[in-house]
Design a protein around this nucleic acid. Structure first.
Length: 113
DNA sequence: GGCGTGACTTGAA
DNA sequence: ATTCAAGCCACGC
């Protein structure tokens, strides 16, 4: 009827699940998740999904952009929480950027395969 | 039901 | 190296 957007936020659920499946000390990019979900390159939706995410269950701080930059830190309650948490997980962050991002990169479409 | 925005990505100038 | 532009899908008004 009328309009129904997506009906079920399966997309969001998928994002949450993937985020929670991210191994500790690892990070992933919005595009990687978007690709894994089959959304193509609509990485924006992944970010938007995070915005709608109960950041208590989903470690959105483990999700960064393809550059390894903590672009979403501005959206956290204390923006520094993202950086602090990543460091606690074993990920080094310098100037909002993840060190050895390529090494810590966790691709769901490959690791989860 | 249309317009703008957004935690992105990629390519080209 | 940098900056600009376009593409993408969903949500808010």
């Amino acid at each position: 009827m009328s309009k129904k957007t997506s009906g079920e936020p399966n997309f969001f659920e998928n994002v949450y699940e993937v985020c929670m499946l991210i191994p500790k000390g690892r990070v992933t990019s919005y595009g990687a998740i978007a690709r894994y979900l089959g959304t193509g390159m609509s990485a924006r939706m992944v970010g938007w999904a995070m915005n709608a995410t109960p950041n208590k269950k989903v470690p959105a701080h483990r999700v960064v952009n393809s550059q390894g930059l903590l672009t979403g830190k501005h959206h956290f309650k204390p923006p520094s929480a993202m950086e602090s948490r990543l460091r606690k997980e074993g990920v080094k962050v310098v100037k909002d950027k993840i060190v050895d991002f390529e090494k810590k990169f966790w691709d769901p479409s490959k690791e989860l395969l």
